[in-house]
Write a protein that binds this DNA or RNA. Sequence first.
DNA 1: GCCCTGTCTCGACGTCCGTCGAATCAGAGA
DNA 2: TCTCTGATTCGACGGACGTCGAGACAGGGC
Lengths: 127, 127
Amino acid sequence: MSKQHKSLALIDLNADAPCCPPLAQSQVPAETAAVLAPAFKALGDPVRLRLMSMIASAEDGEACVCDLTPAFNLSGPTISHHLKTLREAGLVDAERRGTWVYYRARPQILRQLAALLSIEPVAAATA
Amino acid sequence: MSKQHKSLALIDLNADAPCCPPLAQSQVPAETAAVLAPAFKALGDPVRLRLMSMIASAEDGEACVCDLTPAFNLSGPTISHHLKTLREAGLVDAERRGTWVYYRARPQILRQLAALLSIEPVAAATA
DNA sequence: GCCCTGTCTCGACGTCCGTCGAATCAGAGA
DNA sequence: TCTCTGATTCGACGGACGTCGAGACAGGGC
């Protein structure tokens, strides 16, 4: 098989450790920005931000589309579209169980985004 | 009709303390989402994410447009437009000193965004 | 098999966004 | 004052986005 140049898989959004130092500590390289920006973009819509929160804060760690949809004054297809956006941004996972589809948050990438934004009092490696 | 003015200042993006609990801890209310989503949206473009990082990680805490622009293969007006977007999202401040304009990050809102995304083992007010 | 319910895909529509060049504004200096 | 440089605003263009209704797909129950 060829190199499968997925081009941007340089950064593993599934890794457990933060992929990169805080944005305020060292300049984010162009490639990293290209990978992470879509995740922020996905969170850049009020509907998706609420969906993300509803999923991430759900009781069993997962939420059914059938519970998500009625929380908004939007059509089913529209909610489905937003969920797809979150999925493609790597923020959530979907699983079908029988008639229903359940969505589950991916804590790793959330952690990475949080780490990127973090502005620690910098017990900085003064090295 | 365009009442869509900044009537959403319910949440103080300048506050020092996080405005709200982590997204994964309790559901983000619609009003909060409406206020914070634009900030994520502003970071949802690779150019702006890099600009934000360049500003936030700058030596003296501030960066001159004249230093920012040449780092991209984009026209001056385009960079200016992105900086305006960051400004309107409350992520940076601008100050003119003589001929040059300097941009400075607002750590508070970055902290709030990071707090919202944080998935801590919740040393939360377990008091 | 048939139908019903839940979810996603498709195509369309209007709006917003990223980019540019040209024009304009703000200071510094001669 | 006039000019030069740096930065923003303006107007335009193409492409992407958010939304919808109609239709397709998946599973369960009859």
